[in-house]
Design a protein around this nucleic acid. Structure first.
Lengths: 135, 135
DNA sequence: CTGCATCCCCGCCGATACTG
DNA sequence: CAGTATCGGCGGGGATGCAG
């Protein structure tokens, strides 16, 4: 991953929700690194619509740089969330699609999306309220 | 937030999973900014066990710097995830606890934790496999 | 005990140019 | 079209010292 999240890679185990977040056994760290990473989640959402080529993703996510898209895709592939297929055309085209794990993860992610939509107003209110008091 | 996620704050709306991720109406961005932020999610998990004082959080998350803990807590408070109570003792103590929204969000987050635990092995395998081929 | 300000390093990431 | 390499800024975040 791009962000190794060194914090929990230290030594002592942090117990939270009955799960040990320790050095050599921290599942959450690995996953959260993906969720955290700026673009990964958005890419997974996009691929949730179906397999897409590099250039298509690039077009659909205008703000991402080509470099970052490449990197994010490799990270996601590395962890098994997406599968990469090269078609030996001229010029070559590369298709990315969700793996089963990626699809499974996407389902969890979608819950965050739904939650976001549901609670966005409350968050905006809280934020405005907070800024009003301290600003 | 610490990370404003400028990418989606641009202009055009990106439709994903039937949700518009655009400039002035991007719920997901606000929430993801929290999830993304290095420590926020862990702090919420900690507070899921009950209200905690600043120093307790600091002790339970040894890797976080005091500066970042302060900042993360303020961010979470700002968006209404946690409530901050100052007890006028000498020396003063400050207690943080989840709001209803924070608790609600935590429930979603816990699903990520569960998912992480369930699929950690698969991810490690995929990663090792990938590194073995390319390295 | 909590929190703020300052300094400063390091790594993310965008821009650009180049390969197959 | 897809990906790599290099340079450079800029901001995150650690260390330290100070205040209430």
């Amino acid at each position: 991953m791009t962000k190794p999240m060194p914090e929990l890679a230290g030594e002592r185990a942090i117990m939270v929700a009955g799960v040990a977040m320790s050095a050599d056994n921290c599942p959450v760290r690995d996953v959260m690194a993906n969720v955290s990473s700026k673009w990964n989640s958005l890419i997974l959402l996009m691929l949730g619509e179906g397999p897409k080529r590099f250039s298509v993703l690039r077009r659909e996510i205008p703000d991402i740089s080509q470099r970052m898209l490449t990197q994010a895709l490799r990270d996601l592939q590395r962890d098994g969330y997406i599968h990469r297929t090269v078609f030996p055309t001229q010029p070559p085209s590369v298709e990315y699609k969700l793996t089963d794990i990626g699809q499974s993860f996407l389902n969890v992610m979608k819950q965050i999306v739904d939650w976001s939509v549901d609670h966005h107003d409350a968050i905006r209110v809280a934020r405005a309220n907070f800024d009003g008091k301290s600003g």
